[in-house]
């Protein structure tokens, strides 16, 4: 078994290298082998995700409790279990277009839970923490120290940097203002103050998006380097250089 596992691991390295090479070929031209690999990837990823869903969720949350119940050692109260079974069966009705409508209340339940979690997440996870963090936009402690110590240049710099942060946030938010005045056949127009602020917001948003884009580009470059390095290692292995 040890030998076969080692052999399989070795094969796996070459297999991974071939898949890497074929996938990278897509950067130059879409080709049938790449398409085949793409389908293999979709299938494998789906199979893996489904198996984990069954193992980590469906079995422990549904199947095992049912078996426990049947064995006379219940781990869930019967009502909870009945609801789980009922909801699952209704959702499974979605497999056929004829019975799909039976599952709608269950998808509605999921929607309701999802909406509530989205609301909770948005408010508790982002809105409140971000507004609270605004209290630290101006570095008050440093400002006080600088101001009291007579370092007016430094204190002004702190004010400037804080103002820049605040202006960026405020103008970015103003950019999204949707309301406008209708002008007949012409394009609706926003309040001139909002528009001016939004113009500034557009500049800051572009800067922020460029920052994010650079991050993604760096990450992708890291992935490219790792893959090319892997191919180099496999080539060395094949050529007996390592």
């Amino acid at each position: 078994m040890q030998i076969s596992q080692g052999f399989l691991s070795q094969i796996g390295v070459f297999f991974a290298a071939a898949l890497t090479l074929i996938t990278l070929s897509y950067a130059f031209r879409d080709n049938p082998i790449f398409r085949a690999i793409l389908h293999l990837f979709v299938g494998v990823a789906a199979g893996y995700a489904a198996a984990i869903a069954v193992q980590d969720v469906v079995l422990p949350q549904l199947v095992y409790p049912i078996l426990d119940e049947l064995a006379g050692t219940p781990t869930l109260d019967i009502i909870d279990l009945a609801i789980r079974v009922g909801l699952t069966l209704l959702l499974l009705a979605k497999l056929s277009p004829r019975t799909a409508r039976l599952g709608s209340p269950v998808t509605a339940l999921l929607t309701g839970v999802g909406a509530a979690l989205a609301i909770g997440g948005a408010v508790q996870g982002t809105l409140i923490p971000q507004i609270s963090a605004a209290a630290g936009i101006f570095n008050v402690e440093s400002f006080q120290l600088a101001y009291q110590g007579g370092y007016y240049g430094e204190s002004l710099q702190i004010i400037f940097e804080g103002s820049l942060l605040l202006l960026a946030t405020v103008s970015t938010l103003a950019y999204f203002h949707f309301g406008a005045h209708s002008r007949g056949k012409q394009e609706p127009l926003r309040n001139i103050f909002v528009d001016a602020l939004a113009w500034l917001g557009a500049v800051f948003i572009a800067v922020a998006l460029a920052t994010l884009f650079t991050g993604v580009l760096q990450a992708a470059l890291g992935a490219l380097i790792e893959r090319v390095a892997f191919l180099r290692d496999v080539a060395n292995l094949l050529l007996g250089l390592q």
Binding site: P129, A133, V216, A219, G222, I225
Partner: peptide
Amino acid sequence: TSAQAAPLLRPYLLSQPQTLQGLVSGVQ
């Protein structure tokens, strides 16, 4: 983290009180 996550985590490094104490991101 990956380099792509760093820009969005930077506000937490700069926040007062600091909610993220340190960050190592990407190849750099």
